[in-house]
Design a protein around this nucleic acid. Structure first.
Lengths: 226, 226
DNA sequence: GATAGACTCCTTCTTTGGTAGGAGGCGAGA
DNA sequence: TCTCGCCTCCTACCAAAGAAGGAGTCTATC
């Protein structure tokens, strides 16, 4: 059937989760590792591996760095995080790094088995109870504006700047925003003037210094508040 | 059974998705809205609403701002995004804002129904095919080279690329390196070809992904060692 | 109703960026 | 020695970027 590996430095926990899997997903072949190095070693050797259950907090891998290392070394290997950490942020970051799921250690065994089954069938699992809670009110709004420049850009100009930052040409931006290329040029010229630079490249450098994404979100928010 | 609302400004698409749901999840009560304002209005009136299918691209809500507004106005209402946009980043941002799922418009009907069913049972749905792909862009910092591209650049090309990354023009680079502008162009063309991109802006994006500074230092070190 | 700003688009022009191809000099290694 | 890769520079040409100036629509505001 499937081959799974459990990477956790607590033998007791490895045994516990192995028992749950044995009972709930019979026929699975289970490997165990007590460190990231060991997991990497075994995973490299074993081609049939279907899924790695990775604990955050291995001795040789602080936090998500272990996941990152794994994704770089063995991109083909699906990894699901199993952790006591229930921070929304950690969960999202894990998914961003390419994890196929995130299972809190507090998950009841039925839910855990269902999650693993879903993942083995190709789905992504996130803990519903945590993710469905509204975000715990983000810090929001930096009152002091480091760059009066960026603040003076209009909504459309920000949209254009965002695309500049992705390396888009005027032509492509025109297509994406469904406006004429000449109009894009007009916007770009305005952006350059307001930012006090002379080329799109420099505009991009200024933009990502000031964290364009944040500003875009703020702009959207302001529009809605009004 | 369940009450769903579809918010999309294309009547044809609303009808299409309504037909799929009618056939696949019989007994569901379906509402429709063609704008964010309309969706907010109906959702406020209808207490029994279980799930909102929200299109990105409504006339009165650019991108994720609509989701943001909904989450603030009606935090109790589960929202699933239905969009043509398949960017990992967009998907993650949507989940971060509290969406309970993200369904690309290209999803086949069976998968769409399964996703909706899962969501109605409390799960989170993310498109596996997109999320399981390794992130396209990630700062690496590992010794293992994910970008054989950059490694293939010669010393001079790296010098040029470093200046490109600071926003320098060909002319300026020529002055700084004391070579002809045509030579700079030759280098730039070589860089673009090796990095597989078509403009200096894109080259810069690739470069600072791969931490150019580190690489430059390494290169200088090698030269000194030799 | 008038004013101002934002967005749209146009033409014209110059500068910059980028490709293609050829060519000479130089140093390392077969 | 001869070859190969890198650096250098050239011409010629084309595409993209950006400046300048004018102009129409719409919306919000006074």
């Amino acid at each position: 059937m499937h081959t799974l590996m459990i990477a956790d430095d607590h033998p007791l926990f490895r045994d516990a989760i192995a028992a749950v899997i044995d009972a709930g997903l019979p026929g699975c072949h289970l490997l165990q590792a007590d460190s990231l190095a060991e997991a990497l070693h075994q995973a490299t050797a074993c081609e049939a591996l279907d899924l790695l259950l990775l604990d955050l907090g291995l001795p040789d891998a602080e936090g998500l760095s272990g996941l990152q290392a794994l994704r770089e070394a063995l991109p083909w290997l699906p990894v699901v995080i199993v952790s006591a950490d229930q921070e929304r942020h950690t969960i999202l970051e894990a998914i961003d790094l390419g994890a196929v799921g995130y299972i809190p250690k507090s998950t009841p065994r039925e839910a855990l088995l269902a999650a693993l089954a879903g993942i083995l069938e190709g789905r992504i699992y996130l803990p519903p109870d945590i993710m469905r809670r509204p975000p715990a009110t983000r810090p929001s709004s930096s009152p002091a504006d480091l760059s009066p420049h960026l603040a003076s850009l209009t909504a459309k100009q920000l949209e254009v700047l965002a695309r500049l930052s992705r390396g888009a040409s005027n032509k492509l931006i025109a297509r994406e925003l469904d406006i004429a290329e000449t109009t894009v040029k007009t916007h770009v010229s305005a952006i350059l003037r307001k930012l006090g630079v002379t080329s799109r490249v420099q505009a991009i450098l200024v933009a990502d210094q000031a964290d364009l994404a944040t500003r875009l979100a703020q702009h959207r928010k302001h529009r809605l508040d009004a």
